[in-house]
């Protein structure tokens, strides 16, 4: 039963990811005084891409064709681990937060390889920059995760959420810092402004788009969907770890429904905050990323220090 619910939850997660992305785009358009497309537009795009005949470069090797599947599958795995509307699910036991980071790394490994596969300058540039961002973001992310894991003395997401719920509302400076650090990392990892611009195809500024420039058809659809899932994953991660209230603690239908409503509400709020931030700031130069991510690391480090100094005996 529990396994069934968790599979259902994962499927729901995957199905809702384009909606979240559409919501973010919709809000952003409104904020920038443009006429927004329908919230359902990402679904239409995906369907269109899946139906299209893919075009592949003649020089491509099997890595190029395999990479979209790997990226998509790692995103789905990660979605299966993260508690969405309910926690205490069996899938959460399969892998913990560090494995989650590992899955992201696996997807990125193949995506960057795919960028290098054709031997075009754009792909190489995107891969190289993606690897720089990853190298700088990973310590900050791990530090934020550690702050959480050491406070809750677990790396299991379900258990951590349980711990936060159990201790009730406590003003933890460490969590606030960790939240800040994780948010910055999430912005960098999902390729949002100010680190990367998901809407650009301007040669010198793109990172993620540069790697997938040669993809089309179902391959592109898988990659797009994967990155939509990733964006929503970070949203769910942040809202469920730091504000888990509302999540269903058992599998009663009413609780599950309430949990679903709660997470949708939290995501809707995040989906307003993210485009607002993106509208307010400008994209950075590539070599300012280190300051941005260094700041994320500093926040996470301060989280750790204030945990050690202020919070424990």
């Amino acid at each position: 039963m529990a396994w069934l619910i968790s599979f259902f939850e994962t499927a729901l997660f995957i199905a809702l990811a384009p909606l979240f992305c559409g919501w973010v785009k919709w809000v952003k358009c409104l904020l920038q005084n443009r006429r927004p497309p329908s919230v359902l537009q990402p679904y239409r795009d995906l369907i269109k891409l899946f139906r299209k005949r893919p075009v592949i470069a003649a020089e491509a090797s099997w890595v190029f064709e395999a990479a979209p599947y790997v990226v998509f599958v790692t995103a789905v795995f990660a979605a299966g681990i993260v508690p969405f509307a309910a926690h205490h699910l069996p899938t959460a036991k399969v892998a913990d937060l560090i494995v989650l980071v590992g899955f992201f790394a696996l997807g990125r490994f193949f995506l960057t390889l795919a960028g290098m596969d054709l031997g075009t300058a754009f792909g190489g540039m995107g891969s190289s920059r993606e690897m720089m961002i990853a190298s700088l973001a990973e310590p900050a992310m791990l530090m934020a995760v550690f702050t959480l894991a050491i406070s809750a003395s677990t790396t299991n997401l379900s258990e951590a959420i349980h711990w936060v719920l159990e201790t009730g509302l406590v003003l933890r400076p460490s969590f606030v810092f960790a939240l800040g650090g994780l948010t910055l990392v999430a912005i960098a990892e999902t390729g949002r402004i100010p680190v990367d611009n998901p809407a650009t195809h301007l040669e010198l500024t793109m990172v993620h788009e540069a790697m997938i420039l040669e993809y089309s058809g179902k391959y592109l659809a898988l990659l797009e969907w994967g990155s939509q899932i990733k964006l929503m994953l970070y949203g769910v991660l942040i809202s469920n770890i730091f504000l888990p209230w509302g999540i269903a603690e058992d599998f009663e239908i009413s609780h599950l429904g309430f949990g679903l409503a709660a997470i949708v509400a939290k995501l809707a709020v995040l989906g307003i905050a993210l485009p607002t931030g993106e509208t307010l700031v400008a994209k950075m130069r590539v070599f300012r990323y280190q300051e941005f991510l260094g700041f994320a690391y500093l926040l996470s480090l301060l989280g750790m220090l204030s945990h050690v100094i202020l919070e424990v005996n």
């Binding site: 201790t167 003003l171 400076p173 606030v176 204030s306 202020l310 919070e311 424990v312």
Partner: peptide, 17 residues
């Protein structure tokens, strides 16, 4: 730990951070 303290004490520590 932090949890045993009143909300005011927590707030002061938070401001300290």
């Amino acid at each position: 730990g932090l949890m045993q303290q009143t909300i005011f004490e927590q707030a002061v520590l938070f401001l300290a951070a």
